[in-house]
Design a protein around this nucleic acid. Structure first.
Lengths: 206, 206
DNA sequence: AGCCTAACGCAACAAGTGTCGCTTTGATCT
DNA sequence: AGATCAAAGCGACACTTGTTGCGTTAGGCT
């Protein structure tokens, strides 16, 4: 039985507006764009409401009122990244599908800008202030939305047994990459993706 | 060829003292202990030199002078955790060895106190200010010091081919656990360790 | 034992952060 | 079009953070 990848639509994290048209929406976009730029420039640790406000051309108090904490501000700004979900390849073979998919992830993690954003998300979620567990779950589920189909296709082709756990396979595939990039900081070697794809596949067939 | 797990002795991160005896050493311990308590209490985001100094009964300026940045302070305080390395079991079979080892890791990650400390380390390493890559590498290498022997024993018993990459196996084994605990925040299900141990083993034999 | 000086404590400071009351703006509705 | 009020702007404020200069304390050395 393969666990489904539910795409929970991530709610916004700023305080709910009762008059969300025109100005509010405009300011919201200005602030979140500015926040992303600030995160790329200085990381989560250096993120400040005032710097964001200045960059956005908005009053600091406004930012404080709508996003009371740094973690809410940062997470809200980063939710859009989840939409840029991992592209799910369809090459005709599981092994190359998995390898391609991991290639894309590693490429993102090797891009300094994206790495900064992921680090920021990680740091924000570690901030004990707000409980972002729901939001985070939605973020990561959305990011691997569609990967379930990749596995389903493989099952249909007979490359994998029909009782595989899609979620487990994807987790097995991608976790070493995130572990290196976000936890240990180890660089990626050339054979990394190939090795991980093979390993995940072998595990899935066991 | 199995990559070796080098135990690089982690250097201290405070500014080098020319008179490290007596008082300096005493204050160092007071501060680092206090830092750990502060991290457990409020996480990395809430860590402040002043709070640490007050808890340690030391002047804030002293803490600032020896640990100029929060990330250095936190990381230095957490290096000791690496010494409490993962216990490496020796049950006579690789599969149960791996499962036991992962059990220990998951147990630590499920302990709120330890989880806070790991999250703090992660957040500190994400802080762009200082380059802690060397230190982090030493930390994680030290943490899995001894795991290489576990694999070597398995090879000697003929349970694994002689050309396995010990580092890769351990990474494959533990990364899903850290990925869940530190990145996605997903909880652990009961079969998690068993499944991961089997997967890592299947991958190693492929 | 007594000198030397690295390292700590103390105090004062500038800069940054978060909050609040009030005024002004502009989206929404009659 | 005009009235209404949610939300933004503005300014003032208390609090926190990081730095610096100087006097004092206590390791390390002869």
């Amino acid at each position: 039985m393969s666990k489904s990848f539910s795409l929970t639509v991530a709610p916004t994290l700023d305080t709910v507006r009762e008059r969300p048209g025109g100005r509010s929406a405009r300011i919201r976009k200005l602030v979140l764009d500015a926040t992303r730029e600030e995160l790329i420039a200085g990381g989560y640790g250096a993120l400040s409401h005032r710097a964001v406000a200045n960059r956005a051309g908005v009053d600091p108090a406004t930012v404080y009122r709508r996003w009371p904490t740094r973690s809410r501000l940062a997470t809200d700004a980063l939710l859009a990244v989840a939409q840029a979900a991992v592209p799910v390849p369809d090459t005709g073979s599981v092994e190359s599908d998995l390898e391609r998919m991991l290639d894309g992830i590693v490429a993102a993690l090797e891009d300094p800008t994206m790495l900064r954003l992921f680090h920021a998300l990680s740091a924000a979620s570690a901030d004990a202030e707000a409980d972002l567990s729901e939001t985070l779950r939605a973020f990561w589920d959305a990011r691997f939305e569609g990967a379930g189909e990749l596995i389903a296709r493989a099952v249909k082709r007979g490359e994998l047994p029909s009782d595989v756990d899609a979620h487990a396979i994807i987790e097995q595939l991608v976790s070493p990459a995130y572990y290196r990039a976000l936890v240990t900081g180890n660089p990626f070697d050339p054979e990394f993706t190939h090795r991980c794809a093979k390993s995940a596949l072998a595990a899935a067939r066991a």
